[in-house]
Amino acid sequence: MNDGTGNVDETENDQNVKKIMFVMRSAPHGTIYSYEGLETVLIMAAFEQDLTMVFIGDGLFALVKDQMTDDIGIKGFIKTYGVLDDYEVEKIYVDRISMEERGLVPEDFAIDIEVKEAEEIAAIMENQHAIIPY
């Protein structure tokens, strides 16, 4: 099976490795959803699942660099995103319209992301075993 990147998906036959997509739509700090969501991603990555993260709407703000949380007394978690690469979570997509609506550009993000159209994201969504929203 082709995973859309041209690579043959070797994990397809492994019953214990599933395609799981995280849909991240919460801004950071206002609620804990984005932070606890990231904790789940790291656990599932440790279980070596085939993970994809998609950032839609205000979820994009969780990825913006230069977040300074000292004055609100909340521990920031933008640095934690840096370890995703070590856990081989590499499919990290940002919805183009959400980005443009918020006046953001790819250079605003703290980690490497790929900007995708809603249609592309929707097609990847259809191909998942499960979708987890945070």
């Binding site: 799981i20 904790e39 656990i43 075993h129």
Partner: peptide, 11 residues
């Protein structure tokens, strides 16, 4: 219990 339980049930 831990988030492993969420992972396991999802699989």
């Amino acid at each position: 219990s831990g988030l492993g339980q969420l992972t396991e049930m999802t699989i």
